[in-house]
Simulated scan of single mutants.
Amino acid sequence: MAETLGMLCDKLTIVKLKQYHTDDEKRLESLNKQATQLQEEIDTYVADAVVGNIPPEKLTFAANKVFKKEGNETKEVVGDIGALFFQLADVNCRLWHEVEKGYDIENIPVSEKDNLVKMLAVLNLERNKCIDAIDARFLDLIVSKKS
């Protein structure tokens, strides 16, 4: 699968969440290396895109989620790259906490399980919207720079 700026940002937010939620020194050391690698990869990716080393058509890789739209409404995703990255980090935090609930699924009351599954699905849709929006906004910036 092709890596895009949105995908790299997604990975970085997940690494940061893992860092926040662990005290294990070995794991933290590994996560620190991953965070540094991802930051360097983002910097290189942006620099390569700006100078034209990455063709514009390779800057996006749409999720193309296929789902029933009715009943699965998601938050609006808008703004420049910083705002979109913030929204991605926010949705990944919310998704993290919902997934944590799922690890203890046998202790969730039956009446709440449907809500959990629905929330996981909707948050994942929002996550993909954020990734796609970062990629689209970055593409717009690169194309407008060349014009």
Rank of each mutant, 00 (worst) to 15 (best):
F61A: 14
I81H: 00
V66C: 13
E40I: 05
I81R: 02
E76R: 03
F67Q: 03
L88Q: 00
N72A: 12
P56R: 03
D80E: 07
L59V: 06
T60C: 09
N72R: 03
V51P: 03
Q87F: 01
N64Q: 15
F67D: 06
N53C: 10
F85E: 04
K68A: 14
P55A: 13
G82Y: 05
Y45V: 09
N53L: 05
T44W: 02
L88H: 02
L38M: 14
I81Y: 05
V66L: 15
P56W: 06
G82N: 08
I42A: 04
F85S: 00
E76K: 08
N64R: 14
T44C: 12
L59G: 03
I81A: 01
A62K: 10
V51C: 07
V46F: 05
A83H: 14
E57S: 01
N64C: 12
V46T: 02
F86E: 12
L84H: 00
V77E: 08
I81G: 00
F67L: 12
F86R: 07
E70A: 12
D43V: 03
V78W: 05
L38E: 11
F85L: 04
E70V: 13
F61S: 10
G82R: 09
E40H: 03
T60F: 10
T44P: 00
K69C: 15
K75G: 11
D80Q: 00
E57F: 09
Q87S: 13
V78C: 12
E40T: 04
V77T: 07
V46S: 09
K69A: 11
A49F: 05
V78A: 04
G82F: 09
A89F: 02
F86D: 11
L88N: 01
K75A: 12
P55M: 13
G79F: 13
I54T: 10
F67C: 10
V78H: 14
A63F: 08
L84R: 00
D48E: 10
T74L: 07
